[in-house]
Amino acid sequence: MTVLEGQPQPVQRMSLGAGWRRAWRTGDWWRHLGLGGFLFFMFLPFIITIIISFKDIPQFDHYPFTVTFPLHPDNYLEAWRIVSRYILNSIITSGTSVIGMVVLAAIAAWAFARYPFPGRELFFFGVLALLMVPGELTLIPAFLLVKDLGLLNTRWVLIAPYIAGGQVFAIFILRQFFEALPGEMFEAARIDGANELQVFRHIGIPLSQSILGVVAIMHVLSTWNDVIWPLVTLRSNELMTLTIGLYAFRTAWYTIWGPLMAGYVIASIPLIILFAFTSRLFVEGLSSGAIKM
């Protein structure tokens, strides 16, 4: 990165101690300072959440924002009893819908990318146009639809629309990727006697694992975080997903901050675990430069 040689460098750098001299010379010290400042404030709410999650009520009343002893890890047990059901529900909902969505979207995107069938662009436009339709327009009719279908207060009321809606963006991304795959490889497989399904399953899919992963993660994030749809379609506490479950938890436990904050921490863990395993995919997928207008 020759870029950086041109950065303004402080004149007085030679007069400083050896350790600092290096930081001055590279010109990076103030960048670390700036980034550190931003990160401090970005993480501050989470740090305080963790601190409070170990407090009982008197500890919070006297010293709300500093670490107090003894710690109260039992807050986590209490919160787990309430939140665990919601987490399980969210895992079932997001998990089922992401599998269904990726399978259907991959098949459809493959069709759009590799076969010049009559009406291809028209059908594709029919998918793309839905990117322009905001949830506000469809919320009410969709609610009345699932009500008429008798799906209210079942798991399917979330899963089916999530599969349907998630496909739109996924097909858009996957088609571009499938089209860019080298066609010679598929020709070679066909010559060797593979049928269309085998070409897709044994060559197309393995080559596309990373992009399928990115699409899947984005779908999990968006369904996991959805508030309004589960709020209007689910009534029973047994089926509530994490978002509305936490919302109900907060309303019921307001001012009992220790277990509440422990609940927030527990609620964040599944996605952090997912992220820990997929961060490379995630960071590189977003950094690939393909995302612009």
Partner: peptide, 18 residues
Amino acid sequence: PTFALLLTFNYYPAFMGL
């Protein structure tokens, strides 16, 4: 399958909303 779902849960509500 893709279009069956899109027509039911996306197109129908969108046109109904309008």
